[in-house]
Each structure stands twice: as structure tokens, then as C-alpha cells.
Design a protein around this nucleic acid. Sequence first.
DNA 1: TTGAATGTGGACTAACATAGTCCTATTTAG
DNA 2: CTAAATAGGACTATGTTAGTCCACATTCAA
Lengths: 121, 121
Amino acid sequence: MALKYISNSGNKVITTREISDSKNIPYDLLSKIMQTMKNENILSSNQGSSGGYSLSKRPDEIPLYNLISAIDGEVNIAECLKESPVKDCSMTDNCSIKSPVMLLQKEVEDLFKRKTISDFV
Amino acid sequence: MALKYISNSGNKVITTREISDSKNIPYDLLSKIMQTMKNENILSSNQGSSGGYSLSKRPDEIPLYNLISAIDGEVNIAECLKESPVKDCSMTDNCSIKSPVMLLQKEVEDLFKRKTISDFV
DNA sequence: TTGAATGTGGACTAACATAGTCCTATTTAG
DNA sequence: CTAAATAGGACTATGTTAGTCCACATTCAA
């Protein structure tokens, strides 16, 4: 919603406060999310008074996949598919359904990579 | 993996113990999962000695969607899309990205409905 | 030069979800 | 009868996440 808000403002520099007030999102929470998106290069920021955020790319150049990866971490349909599984499944190496699971993972990934922020604007 | 195991056994009646031993899945845990799948009509069961489980339908008649719904609950890309949201989002009614989110939800659902257990066998 | 407005970032908490365990029935074939 | 199954309730330990709070850094403009 924040990205849509910025996008619909003609990509001016927008403050967290403005979005927070306008969309009724708790300031501190939104603030954290904006920072995360900044760190993942989805947003650019200007500090100081009259500072704020703007999109770092055109909406159609930002895959939903990247946004979710940035905020929620890897998009995975199963723990064992994470790059660094927190707890490794005892049968990762001889899992009997590994290949169909990986195929589905790929299909989900592709779906989220095809969608971009422009689909939400 | 359990469904695949049963499916590959020519759909004989298979015990939880057999799958647990053969696939190194903790018995108590697998047992709970088998019960859940039974209650959701994915499996049929026979009690008593020489009892066990069998598929209630052909593998290609069991959508992955049903399996996941049964075990993990509704397949939702966002809390607000649940039938009974645990905590309702303050802006459910005037969410600015509701319709594209619902579209994506539908696409994910469709993907999981197209896949069936036979894709994992 | 100062102060207000802004982003930055670390630490913390409360609430919730989930895998996994344990124990006690109940059912049924032999 | 009894052994081998399923059935199911209660519980726990662990991890995850939304959300908060506080101190700091940066910049603009009066």
C-alpha cells in the first residue's frame, strides 16, 4: 500500500508520516518497513527535513518477488528449500518427493516474479 | 511422502508404523498427520489389528490444495483473506490493494488445485 | 546557528503458531 | 484374551513476527 501511495503521487518524495496518517498504519511499524525496503533497494531515501522516500525504479521493474523477499525473507513453500534451512530435515538427501516439490517451488516463484508493483497500483 | 508410499504400495492397507519405520518419520507425529488426513477424507482407515490406512480416492483425484488445507489449514497469501481472520485488519473494508491481492490469491489457489497427489508419486 | 522534521538502527516484548511428545482410550483379527 | 492398530486429548518447547520504544544522524530553513 505504501508503494502504491508513492507511485500514485507521481513519484515525488513522500514521508513515512504522510503515508502513516493517510492510510492509518502505525508510524513505527511502517517506518521499519520503509527502512527495510530502502535497504533492499526498492526505495531511495533522502534524510533530513524535507526528506522522505521515493521508488528506486519504475513500478513495473519491481517484481513482487523482490518485495516479499525483502520484507518477509525468501519465498519458499517448504522449510527445506531455504538457502540456509534453520533446522535441516533428516531426509533432505533422500526425500522421496524432492523433485516435484522443487518444481512446484519454481512455479510459485515464477508467479511471484511475473507480478510487479504495477499490478498493485 | 506418506501418501506416495501408500500409493506406490498398490493401495493396500498400510500401517503408520510401516511408513514411520521405512521413511524415518517420528511415529507419533506421523500418526497425528494420518489421523488428520483421515478426518479430512483423504485417507480411509481400518481400526484394529491388521488395520491401517488406504487412499480414499485415486491420487489424481486428490488436489494438493485439499491436502494442504487439511493439514495446514486454508491456503492464503494474506491473513485478511482467511474465512475467519484471527485479527481483522483495520482496513479490510477500504484496503487500497484488495483486488490485485485477491487476484493473486486466486492464481495461487488455482496452481495448488491443479496439482494433485499423482504429481508427487 | 539552531531547531524541527525527517530517516536509521538497535533492542526488546507480547502474542501466536507449530512441530513434536505423551498418555490413555477404543477397535478388531486371530 | 491379547497384540496390533487407529483415535484423540492435553501439553510443551521453540521459533516467528508484528509492533513498540528509544537514542541517534542528517538536513533544511528561518
